[in-house]
Design a protein around this nucleic acid. Sequence first.
DNA 1: CTTACTGTATTATTATAGTTAATACAGTTT
DNA 2: AAACTGTATTAACTATAATAATACAGTAAG
Lengths: 128, 128
Amino acid sequence: MFDVDVRSRVPIYEQLVDNIKKMIIQNVLEKDEKLPSVRKMAQEITINPNTIQKAYRELESEGYIYSVPGKGSFVSDTKNTVSNQKIEVLTEELEGIVKELIYLGVPVKKIKTLVDEAEAEMREDGDR
Amino acid sequence: MFDVDVRSRVPIYEQLVDNIKKMIIQNVLEKDEKLPSVRKMAQEITINPNTIQKAYRELESEGYIYSVPGKGSFVSDTKNTVSNQKIEVLTEELEGIVKELIYLGVPVKKIKTLVDEAEAEMREDGDR
DNA sequence: CTTACTGTATTATTATAGTTAATACAGTTT
DNA sequence: AAACTGTATTAACTATAATAATACAGTAAG
């Protein structure tokens, strides 16, 4: 569920932050749901509790979770902002890809055509 | 011309690799053009020659440049080899993101605006 | 009240990657 | 010969991530 790649160049605690953020935004983790305790999570994925704590501290400071000493760490209410945050993330990704395509020599016009094609495809197979 | 951010989390040598790759792909650096020597480049951007060498070694192993001991390092002929496959991959990613954005209610028109903004931002960066 | 959980904090240590530094050697260019 | 090139090697320094070992205080349940 919370998988990390210990060999990745991006730090474990940051992978955790990203993963959990994503799950919260996608509503895989719901409001007030309890996250595994730092020690339990540390056991689960066999890494040091301090690393988990660092991730949780970061998530709390960004408002994604709230922690109560003695009780645990819980998912914050991000309901009203969830969709916006998700769009924000996707927009950033889009920006990066567009920039790469442009420097690879793909003209903006062509990129916009791709956007249209994606929309068309989406209407065809109305799933997802 | 070859600027790096020494405070970035991405290593200097990798920034160099990326920058030079981009310039080659965009044809800012042309086939058989001579790159600054490791020592000269090191002076230019005030970092260690070994770091430059590491970048050049990487670029050579990826086929972007070729180095001749005693002469220098030169841009390879990569036209039509390197970038096409990347464009394919990026196009698929673009498609996925666009579909998600549409699903979230972002109109196609707005997405195209984002494309334009990305292009504009890119031109800003390019002049820096 | 005791026990076993929670989050939190602190300090020390290890591991790793990036970078710098100082040389050295051999090929080339003039 | 002198001044360039790329290349290689070894050592040292730095910053950051991660581990380890504790400790303390709040909460919940028996």
